[in-house]
């Protein structure tokens, strides 16, 4: 187990190193480099460009510069934004909690909607409600986040006008005001996501309800509700948790889109703005943060799997 963790950790670090190096390398070969931008279009005489390059350190070899960036990054110093001039690490520290909150609330909503409905559909297979749920989840599964996002913006500006507030309020400041500003964006992500969870829960739940250990539990006198919601559900959660881990990948995309639509000051919108401004120091730092979290979540999912499903334990 420790060996497994150490190996995954080493892999993750290697991946992040390659990733940041790639973006670093690309940022130096793109048309219209930073020195030219900083020198201004008219004032970009060869002498001025050379001077600018020297001042920014662009005249030194790529690997040396990357090494220097890495040395600073390890100490938590990502330099200053080329666009706003602000400290990048500080900006990311203020944007990260917004995205994290939206992500966590979205997944929670999706799980709260998805797992009970999936269990219900599995217990009443073939019923009217089951068929309705299948149809709805099939449809919702295909609704892109930006479509559900636009739908919820519309709802927020017409139907839920008194509830929705388009100004983001941090959680630490005012719980209710915070909820008013993030509930609709979170629902926009949670609705398509819960469709996938409904389908997966239904499938695995039907499978585990037919397993021998369910009969064993019944024979041993466990109540039917206990058999269903404790024994069978627990055995079904493994694939669902894996799915939630996979969903997190799509969630990063969803966050970028939803933060853009709803004007939330999160990391997704931050990275989008930075790409638009070719603010590469910020892009690299933000990508590192996002990919880092992504890798950690996938790792946690792998760890959770054997805890949730006892059948997986012997194999690992």
């Amino acid at each position: 187990m420790i060996l497994f963790t150490a190996r995954r950790l080493a892999e993750a670090i290697a991946v992040l190193l390659v990733l940041t190096f790639l973006i670093y390398a690309i940022s130096t070969i793109v048309p219209g480099d930073i020195a030219q931008q900083m020198a201004g279009i008219e004032g970009a005489t060869p002498e001025r460009m050379a001077e600018m390059r020297q001042r920014l350190g662009l005249d030194r070899p790529l690997l040396v510069r990357y090494g220097e960036w890495l040395g600073n990054a390890v100490r938590g110093d990502f330099g200053h934004s080329l666009f706003t001039g602000r400290n990048i690490a500080a900006d990311i520290r203020s944007q990260f909690p917004v995205s994290l909150e939206v992500a966590v609330v979205s997944v929670l909503l999706a799980v709260i909607i998805g797992i009970p409905l999936g269990v219900y559909a599995a217990v009443r297979t073939g019923s009217f409600i089951d068929r309705i749920l299948r149809g709805i989840s099939l449809l919702f599964f295909s609704v892109p986040t930006f479509v559900s996002g636009v739908l919820f913006v519309w709802l927020g500006s017409i139907v839920l006008r008194s509830f929705y507030s388009s100004f983001y309020v941090p959680l630490t400041q005012d719980l209710l005001a915070n909820l008013r500003s993030i509930l609709l964006p979170c629902l926009a992500i949670a609705l398509p996501t819960s469709a996938a969870i409904i389908q997966m829960t239904r499938t695995t739940m039907i499978a585990s309800l037919q397993e021998p250990f369910i009969d064993t539990a019944r024979v041993k006198g466990a109540r039917e509700s206990r058999v269903r919601y404790i024994h069978a559900l627990r055995a079904s959660l493994g694939p669902v948790v894996t799915l939630i881990g996979l969903i997190f990948g799509a969630l990063v995309g969803g966050l970028i889109i939803v933060e853009q639509i709803f004007n939330l000051p999160g990391l997704g919108r931050g990275v989008l703005l930075a790409i638009g401004e070719r603010d590469f120091p910020f892009v690299i730092a933000a990508t590192l943060a996002i990919a880092g979290v992504y890798i950690v979540v996938n790792f946690l999912v792998d760890l959770l799997y054997p805890i949730l499903d006892p059948r997986q334990r012997e194999q690992t």
Binding site: A12, V15, L16, L19, I23, G249, A250, V252, G253, I256, V271, L272, I275, V283, T287, I290, A291, Y294, I295
Partner: peptide, 11 residues
């Protein structure tokens, strides 16, 4: 694979 797909595409 370690990168979220849409982010890679956006980059």
């Amino acid at each position: 694979l370690a990168m979220p797909g849409l982010l890679t595409a956006i980059l």
